[in-house]
Design a protein around this nucleic acid. Structure first.
Lengths: 235, 235
DNA sequence: TCCAATTCTTGAGCTATGTCAAGGAATGGC
DNA sequence: GCCATTCCTTGACATAGCTCAAGAATTGGA
């Protein structure tokens, strides 16, 4: 109970809300556990509530009939998922599964909406979180349509660098195959582009550890647009 | 005034809200007019409120440095835009401009948030609209990443058919160049794919009027996945 | 410590789609 | 009804990135 409240208090959704409200939220929240690689929900399935990640990583993704997959978002502790059908429609717009062992809090739709209606500050927090998610989605659309793969990767590396405290020594937080699915490319192409960027002296890759070398090129955004890194294929 | 209220009453955001609330909303709404092709706001610009389309069409889009453009959404009468920065951050995540002459209502952020806090039903309506938008964005990401251009076009034609009352005689509501930008392709490629689909007996194209011929192929979703229509280029 | 499984890399070849360039059609304002 | 725009099409060509296939490297379990 206390530890549910703790999780809620630190989540993006509920950060900064008054203690009594957090208490009420903790009362309706149910803890759920998932093993690594487990399906949490499937696109198109009916929804009776949403989740907040307490521990571990969850991927939100769309899958094609032939098995290709596009990750929309990788969620970490404190982030909500499955909110769309709470407010519109009945089914999940995407699938979710765990990338690691996961603990999540489940908040049933009905009880949550009752709380929402009674607490405007809660509603505003939810809207802010949804707006943030929309920014991310808009950026992803832009990225898929207007940037080539090197530019998408560069943007992602910069994002990680910021998230990991502005260091130039970053660590990929997901396997490269998953990163490829997140960037909308294949593992093979991603691997080749790591090579190209290494050969160009921009980065050094050692497993999941990546050093950003040419700081000016990164900071200046030189590689942010199309075609800059591109050169003959490594080999 | 009355006519502002009318627009609000019929909008996606505010449909079904009680009369007195609509009246209050109409009081804070300011009418703005734009000529065809005018910029309404630019990505990255600070925002002091959001808009609702009263008449005409607005495109929400991202633009690359080299001028290529990806349309996120085409908005018509009743649809809100520019809401993201009302709830998160300060700047618009995308640009907006008019595809036709446009009349819009502008709702200042501060006054709107005051109303929101006082009216939970308004907040729920806003969240529903945002959730709907997120579904669309998720579908667009899926489409760009997992579908080829013929499949994207097919999905769009089906969407138009539904929107235009389930008929198989549909009319494109935007120029083909804009449609290309909406589907994440070039005008040239779009043109060629119209040819291929015509040659395959799936559609007949006459300017902006399109007849869906092979109903089973469309309904069954045969062309929804990759590669089905693809064949040698027309020529 | 070794095996099994997963994850990653590399090679080779193909194709969907982009770009450039130019001509033709349609549209709207006056 | 005509001109000026805008819009659309077609051809020729280039290429980014995908797929298939196989081998290498890493990881974790027992």
């Amino acid at each position: 109970m206390e530890n549910k409240k703790q999780v809620l208090a630190e989540s993006v959704f509920f950060k900064g809300l008054p203690e009594p409200l957090l208490h009420q939220l903790a009362q309706i929240a149910q803890e759920k556990k998932f093993r690594r690689g487990e399906m949490i929900f499937l696109e198109g399935t009916a929804c009776s509530g949403f989740y907040i990640v307490a521990q571990g990583q969850v991927k939100l993704y769309k899958m094609a009939l032939d098995g290709r997959e596009q990750i929309l978002y990788v969620l970490e502790a404190g982030e909500p998922f499955g909110i769309v059908p709470v407010f519109h429609g009945h089914s999940f717009p995407a699938s979710a599964s765990s990338l690691t062992a996961v603990t999540a809090l489940f908040l049933p739709k009905k009880e949550f909406i009752a709380l929402l209606a009674a607490h405007p500050e809660l509603a505003l927090a939810v809207m802010a979180a949804m707006a943030r998610r929309m920014r991310r989605f808009a950026a992803k659309i832009e990225s898929l349509s207007l940037k080539d793969v090197p530019a998408r990767l560069t943007a992602h590396l910069l994002y990680l660098a910021r998230k990991q405290g502005g260091t130039s020594q970053i660590t990929l937080d997901i396997p490269k195959k998953q990163l490829a699915n997140l960037l909308g490319t294949s593992a093979e192409t991603l691997s080749r582009i790591f090579n190209d960027m290494s050969a160009a002296g921009l980065i050094r890759v050692e497993g999941r550890r990546i050093a950003l070398l040419d700081h000016t090129a990164f900071q200046g955004g030189t590689i942010m647009e199309r075609g800059t890194v591109t050169q003959k294929r490594s080999g």
